[in-house]
Simulated assay, not measured.
Amino acid sequence: MSVTSNEAVPAAGDEAPLRVAVLVGSVREGRQGRAVTDWFFGAAAGETGLALDVIDLAEIDLPLVLPGFGGTASPAAVAALRDVSPRLAAADAFVVVTPEYNHSFPAPLKNFIDWHHAQWQAKPVGFVSYGGLGGGLRAVEQLRLVFAELHATTVRDSVSLHGPWSGLGEDGTPRDAAVCAGAVKGMLGQLTWWGRALRSARAERPYAG
Results as ranks from 00 to 15, higher is better:
Leu168Ile: 06
Glu141Lys: 11
Leu88Thr: 10
Gln119Arg: 05
Arg144Glu: 01
Ala35Met: 13
Gly25Val: 00
Ala45Gly: 07
Ala58Thr: 07
Gly70Ile: 11
His162Pro: 15
Arg138Glu: 02
Ala177Glu: 15
Ala44Lys: 13
Gly49Leu: 01
Ala73His: 04
Ala16Asp: 14
Val96Ala: 00
Ala93Thr: 15
Val78Cys: 13
Gly126Arg: 15
Asp38Gln: 08
Leu137Gln: 09
Ala91His: 13
Ala51Gly: 04
Ala35Cys: 04
Ser160Val: 02
Gly49Asn: 01
Asp83Arg: 14
Glu59Trp: 05
Ala91Trp: 13
Arg28Gln: 14
Arg202Gln: 02
Thr37Leu: 12
Pro174Ser: 03
Asp14Phe: 11
Gln119His: 11
Val146Met: 07
Arg196Val: 05
Trp194Asp: 02
Leu18Asn: 12
Gly135Tyr: 06
Val128Leu: 12
Ala90Thr: 01
Trp39Gln: 07
Ala122Trp: 14
Val3Thr: 13
Ala90Glu: 11
Ala118Glu: 11
Val179Phe: 08
Pro124Met: 05
Met1Glu: 12
Glu204Met: 04
Ser200Gln: 10
Asp157Thr: 07
Ala73Trp: 01
Pro206Lys: 00
Asp157Val: 02
Val27Ala: 14
Trp115Ile: 01
Arg87Asp: 06
Thr98Gln: 02
Gly25Asp: 02
Gly163Asn: 15
Arg82Glu: 15
Gly172Thr: 05
Arg28Pro: 10
Ala80Trp: 11
Thr192Lys: 03
Phe112Ser: 06
Lys123Cys: 06
Val159Phe: 15
Val22Phe: 14
Ala76Lys: 12
Glu149Trp: 05
Thr192Val: 04
Ala16Val: 12
Leu81Ile: 15
Gly46Arg: 04
Gly42Trp: 07
Val155Ile: 09
Val97Asn: 02
Leu161Glu: 09
Glu15His: 09
Phe40Trp: 15
Val155Leu: 09
Gly71Pro: 00
Ala177Asp: 15
Glu29Gly: 01
Val155Asn: 01
Ala93Gln: 08
Ala45Pro: 02
Leu198Pro: 12
Ala73Tyr: 06
Val3Glu: 15
Tyr130Asp: 01
Phe94Trp: 09
Gly68Ala: 12
Asn111Glu: 07
Thr154Tyr: 02
Gly131Met: 03
Ala77Pro: 12
Phe112Trp: 12
Tyr207Lys: 06
Phe127Tyr: 13
Ala89Trp: 08
Thr192Tyr: 04
Gly13Cys: 03
Trp165Asn: 13
Gly30Asp: 10
Leu150Ile: 07
Ile113Ala: 02
Thr37Ser: 08
Phe94Thr: 00
Gly126Trp: 05
Val3Lys: 11
Phe41Pro: 03
Ser158Ile: 03
Tyr130Ser: 03
Ala8Met: 08
Asp176Ala: 06
Gln190Phe: 11
Thr98Met: 02
Gly70Thr: 07
Pro99Asp: 15
Ser74Glu: 13
Ala89Gln: 14
